[in-house]
């Protein structure tokens, strides 16, 4: 791992101009990411940022890190591959609620059980924005969209409870209503030695409902620190997470006080162990070439 240097938020900002709708919450999210990365201090070339498909998945392109705007719902397998191939990289994954909890939903459980040192940022706007406003996995029951003309009949996925139930070691929530808090939360997630999940309530100004805009979110937001929540208490975190959709708790829900070993770390250990008795490359070549 390289030594950290003095970097400023602007060092992580690329020349590409975001093409999100004016007023989109993702403008604040990317600022929060710049600030968190500056606080971490790793140079941009030591960071890999992978996303799926959707409005929010454009985000790697707006940073100076190595970025991969990949395949719908497949940010996490690709991020895991990158981390295994080059464990020294700081690996971030990002996407929307549809990308992460619908088409990509099956991948989260496996990343959590492997506990790879990857930070996953979901920009949750409860709608498919890029494809013009269809029902998403986190849309509230009763929500009227172009694919639910008479109101959704389904309960939404609860992203916080989902990852807590699978045993994620770090689970937090943030929002553009508090950028300083968002940057600090992302920074803490990156510093956590293992899989870290940050759900960011990021309003869709075009297809989002009024209550999901900044003003509405502010009205239901509450700081977990101010509430006196103990982030080491997983059951208390699960209890609070059940209020997803009604309350917006901001900050760290759960941080495992004794982080489990990471898969990438264990793979390195095993490689080191097995390579002790491994034949030299010349010997391997001999085995194949010489009879």
């Amino acid at each position: 791992m390289s030594a950290t240097c003095d970097f400023q938020a602007k060092d992580y900002k690329s020349d590409l101009k975001p093409i999100w709708c004016p007023g989109c919450g993702d403008f604040s999210v990317v600022q929060g990411i710049y600030r968190a990365l500056a606080a971490i201090g790793r140079p941009p070339h030591e960071i890999a940022f992978v996303s799926g498909i959707g409005c929010s998945s454009r985000i790697p392109g707006y940073t100076t890190a190595y970025g991969f705007n990949s395949v719908h719902g497949r940010a996490l397998p690709i991020a895991q591959g990158i981390k295994l191939a080059n464990p020294d990289l700081l690996v971030l994954a990002a996407g929307g609620d549809g990308d992460g909890f619908s088409i990509g939903g099956g991948h989260i459980a496996h990343l959590i059980r492997r506990n790879m040192d990857i930070t996953y940022i979901v920009m949750d706007n409860q709608i498919y924005g890029l494809t013009k406003g269809q029902l998403s996995p986190t849309s509230q029951k009763g929500r009227v969209t172009c694919t639910s003309r008479f109101g959704s009949l389904e309960e939404p996925v609860n992203p916080l409870l989902y990852v807590l139930a699978y045993g994620a070691g770090f689970v937090a929530q943030a929002s553009p209503t508090d950028l300083a808090g968002m940057a600090a939360t992302i920074e803490e997630a990156i510093r956590y030695p293992g899989f870290a999940f940050v759900n960011i309530q990021s309003p869709c100004v075009t297809y989002g409902e009024e209550g999901q805009q900044i003003k509405g979110l502010k009205a239901i937001s509450e700081s977990l620190v101010a509430m006196g929540h103990n982030p080491a208490d997983r059951l208390a975190a699960m209890d609070l997470a059940q209020q997803y959709g009604q309350k917006m708790h901001l900050g760290v829900f759960y941080r495992n006080p004794e982080p489990a070993p990471t898969y990438d770390g264990l793979v390195r250990e095993r490689q080191a162990l097995l390579s002790k008795d491994a034949p030299s490359p010349e010997r391997i070549l001999d085995l194949f070439i010489k009879k």
Binding site: P22, G23, F27, P176, V205, I214
Partner: peptide
């Protein structure tokens, strides 16, 4: 100005 102060076609 806050990011959410912008709107398309202002």
């Amino acid at each position: 100005p806050d990011y959410d102060a912008a709107r398309a076609f202002m």
